[in-house]
């Protein structure tokens, strides 16, 4: 009897040790997701620099709307409308000199994409095109300081169609479910969670609006104008 009781206690002690250890390891892994999120972003920032950008397939024939901008001295030449790239493909690079940001831009806004890069909302036009391009990123990574952008600050998006420079015009906080206007001229919206220091999921978004002020089309893209 005494032997059986001692054996049960031994078993209980073992179970408590295994269970306690497992919980502590699980807890450490859960907390470890926080630095891991930053590490993944830092790694993606480095490894995507030399990767080729996905080539945008131009919609043929280009609609007249784009032609109107190419002949209008008021606006820089817009990119010809292109088909949305495959989700997950590296489509460009976003540079915001004022904030020291040089981030890869990936097609799509799934959690796995935003975990490592800036995502392009596939329901918006491609960068440089006539309309509003929406780029989203996490508030705790790439877009943590986008509220520091002031009207007049510039940012650049580089894609296979060219280099597009936008000038910031305004900021706004909108509720989830609100859609931004699709402009009849090339514009860009940077989007992230609000407040910018939120450590949980929130129901507001911080948006920075910018308009295209300069463009340098690649020869193949310019040929479609």
């Amino acid at each position: 009897m005494r032997f059986a009781g001692r054996s049960r206690k031994q078993l209980l002690r073992s179970l408590l040790l295994v269970g306690g250890g497992a919980l502590m390891i699980a807890g450490a892994l859960e907390i470890g997701r926080i630095p891991l999120a930053y590490l993944r972003v830092a790694r993606a920032e480095q490894t995507t620099v030399s990767k080729p950008l996905v080539k945008v397939q131009i919609v043929a024939p280009p609609p007249a709307k784009v032609v109107s901008y190419s002949v209008n001295a008021l606006y820089p030449p817009a990119a010809a409308p292109g088909h949305q790239p495959v989700t997950g493909s590296l489509m460009g690079r976003l540079e915001i000199p004022k904030l020291g940001i040089s981030a890869p831009v990936t097609q799509g806004t799934a959690l796995s994409i935003l975990a490592v890069s800036v995502g392009h909302l596939s329901s918006s036009v491609l960068p440089g095109e006539v309309g509003t391009t929406v780029l989203a990123a996490h508030d705790v990574t790439y877009f943590h300081h986008i509220d520091e952008l002031a009207p007049g600050d510039t940012l650049t998006v580089r894609t296979s169609q060219g280099v597009f420079t936008y000038k910031v015009v305004s900021h706004q906080v909108i509720s989830v479910g609100t859609n931004v206007p699709n402009t009849p001229y090339p514009s860009l919206v940077l989007e992230t969670c609000y407040p910018l220091d939120a450590l949980q999921l929130v129901n507001q978004r911080y948006v920075v609006r910018a308009v295209l002020v300069a463009s340098h089309l690649t020869p193949s893209s310019a040929a479609n104008q």
Partner: peptide, 24 residues
């Protein structure tokens, strides 16, 4: 622009921290 705010642009750091701490 349809579904402008559909991207989940936040990370639940606080949840991860509390759950991790509770487990530990």
């Amino acid at each position: 622009v349809a579904q402008t705010t559909s991207p989940i642009t936040g990370l639940p750091f606080a949840d991860w921290l509390f759950v991790g701490a509770a487990l530990m």
